[in-house]
């Protein structure tokens, strides 16, 4: 077991999280663009251009056309998770997402959203693993798989693994957008 001892995040840590989340938002938005070229994909500069008073962090993704419809229970929990995440309570969001995953353990979007919360609480290792797990369940949902690879790229770059990050980014780009 890997306990998380609860502690009050410092203001600086919160700012960093918010900044990171903003960068991710940018990153993901780029990832969702139809045909991202290397030039438009943001590099792994996560903490530079984002002002500390950033917008609320990226909420767990809203349902997308290619996503199978979640049950009302899962929808309710992910909405609550989005609210918690927006308020900066990423651990609370993770808790809600874990509840949702007990209802739908094969919901790849939930695994992705959980990976996102781990990235936002500075657990890059788990962020990557959870994104891999999301990918394992994503089937042929190209858009979700791309988001997962971009998240993995981000997680690796945060752990100082530039080469691994680059590989993940290439994986993201190689996913056929048409599928």
């Amino acid at each position: 077991m890997n306990p998380i001892m609860t502690r009050e995040p410092t203001l600086a840590a919160r700012r960093r999280c918010a900044g990171l989340a903003m960068a991710l938002l940018v990153l993901l938005t780029a990832g969702c663009a139809a045909a991202p070229s290397p030039a438009t994909t943001p590099s792994s500069t996560t903490q530079t251009s984002t002002p500390p008073s950033a917008q609320p962090p990226a909420a767990p993704p809203s349902p997308r056309p290619e996503t199978p419809a979640a049950s009302p229970a899962v929808t309710a929990l992910s909405e609550q998770a989005a609210v918690a995440s927006a308020a900066g309570d990423h651990d609370g969001a993770a808790t809600l997402l874990e509840r949702a995953l007990r209802v739908e353990p094969r919901n790849a979007e939930l695994w992705h959203a959980l990976a996102m919360t781990r990235l936002q609480t500075d657990d890059a290792q788990q962020a990557e693993q959870l994104a891999l797990r999301s990918n394992g369940l994503a089937g042929d949902r190209a858009e979700l798989r791309r988001r997962n690879w971009l998240l993995i790229a981000e997680a690796r770059s945060r752990r100082g693994d530039a080469a691994g990050s680059q590989l993940a980014r290439e994986q993201a780009l190689n996913i056929d957008a048409g599928r």
Partner: peptide, 30 residues
């Protein structure tokens, strides 16, 4: 599908007043 996820028996521990002391989150490793 090959994701090792440690078996857990405890989700969280709080003080009597509800203050959270420890949470055992889901963790997984391919």
């Amino acid at each position: 599908g090959g994701f090792h996820t440690p078996l857990r028996a405890v989700r969280a521990v709080t003080l009597q007043d509800g203050t959270r002391v420890t949470r055992y989150p889901l963790s997984t490793t391919q």
